[in-house]
Simulated scan of single mutants.
Amino acid sequence: MKREMDDIRDLYIFDVLKMKRSLDDLASLACTLESRVNEQEDAVEGLTKETMHLAKETIDKERLREREDRLRSSNLRVIGIPEKANRENGAVDIIKEVIEENFAELEDQSLEIVSAHRIPNSVDEHRLTPRHILVKFWSADDKQRILKASRAKKEITYRGTKIRLTADLSPGTIDARSQWASVIKTLQEEGFQPRILYPAKLAFEFRGKTKVFFDIEEFKKFISDIPYLKGLLSNIY
């Protein structure tokens, strides 16, 4: 009888110890899981902070770009007019002559020039092309009228020399527009009539509709579902 009681007691103790080990294992597992959860939460929080920081930087850059573009909204760049030291008219007179030579229909619209000058101000003897002339009009509407007329005429000249007129844009907007250069060239060759809309949006004609894209990622997503365009632009993306 005593032996049987001892066996029962030993079995009970064994079961208790076994249960205790199981509880210890569970507690250890719980600690490990909690540690991993904490690590993941920290990682997510860090990623969120980094993402928020990047988003804020992007927004700040966009705001700065928009602010700079607004300040330049009435400015026009005239590109390609030769420089003749001490023998050329002042920049304001040159612009008036360009308007008279190319846009006689606008002379009656009282286009008011605030200022005009070469940029950069200093002459670089190693520069191979003439400096641009930066023109500031009284209003952005005056600048737009000239740009619209130049697009309609297509070829603009100054005393017989071909020149180019373009809006004066911030460096950020110029960079954003330049990213579309290869796409525009390819689409032009295929007759899609691509063009840049302000400030740096791509527009082109596709299946009877005008498609507009704000950035390259949006454009890449669009062409990924259209095998013809995807193949056409495969050497770019």
Score class of each variant (00 low, 15 high):
Q179V: 10
R65Q: 12
I226N: 09
I94Q: 05
K148A: 03
S74G: 06
Q188N: 06
R164S: 09
D42Q: 15
E83Y: 15
T166M: 14
R131Y: 06
L232G: 08
E107P: 04
L202N: 02
H132Q: 05
F137M: 08
L26W: 10
P227N: 12
P194F: 00
A85E: 14
D215A: 09
L64T: 09
H132P: 00
I156S: 02
V92P: 05
P194K: 01
F206D: 14
E112D: 07
T51C: 12
F222Q: 14
E155D: 10
M52R: 10
T186D: 00
L187E: 00
Y228R: 11
G160H: 04
K162N: 09
I81H: 08
V16E: 07
K221F: 00
Q109I: 05
S122Q: 07
D124K: 04
R3F: 11
D25S: 15
L128K: 10
K221H: 01
V212L: 04
E83W: 07
E83G: 05
S224A: 12
V37H: 11
S122G: 02
K185L: 06
V98G: 06
E88Q: 15
A43P: 05
W180M: 10
Q179C: 05
A85L: 14
S122K: 07
F219R: 12
K154F: 10
P199I: 01
N75P: 09
Q193D: 14
K185T: 11
T210H: 00
D7N: 15
T157C: 09
A43N: 12
R118M: 07
G80W: 07
Q144T: 10
Y237M: 12
A140P: 10
Q179Y: 00
R9F: 11
Q40K: 12
R195L: 07
L111N: 05
V183L: 05
K162C: 07
K209M: 10
K154Y: 10
K153R: 01
L64S: 13
R159P: 09
V78D: 02
S234G: 15
Y228M: 11
S150I: 03
I196M: 00
W138N: 08
E62H: 08
R164C: 06
G191E: 11
I8K: 14
L23F: 13
S170E: 01
K211T: 08
P130S: 03
I133W: 01
N102F: 12
T48Q: 06
Q193R: 08
D69K: 02
V92D: 02
L33C: 13
I174Y: 00
A104D: 03
L71I: 11
L23I: 14
Y237S: 14
I163H: 04
K2T: 09
N86Q: 01
I13C: 06
I95W: 06
S170D: 03
K49I: 08
R177T: 00
L165R: 04
L76A: 02
R70F: 13
E83V: 04
T166K: 15
D175W: 00
R164P: 02
H126D: 15
D42A: 14
V123E: 08
A149T: 12
L202R: 06
D93G: 03
S74A: 15
T32A: 08
S73A: 13
Y158K: 04
A181E: 03
K211W: 03
I184K: 14
D108V: 13
K136R: 15
T58C: 08
D6I: 14
S139T: 15
D215P: 08
L11T: 11
I79W: 13
D175M: 03
H53Y: 10
V98K: 03
V212A: 03
P194L: 00
Y158D: 03
P227A: 13
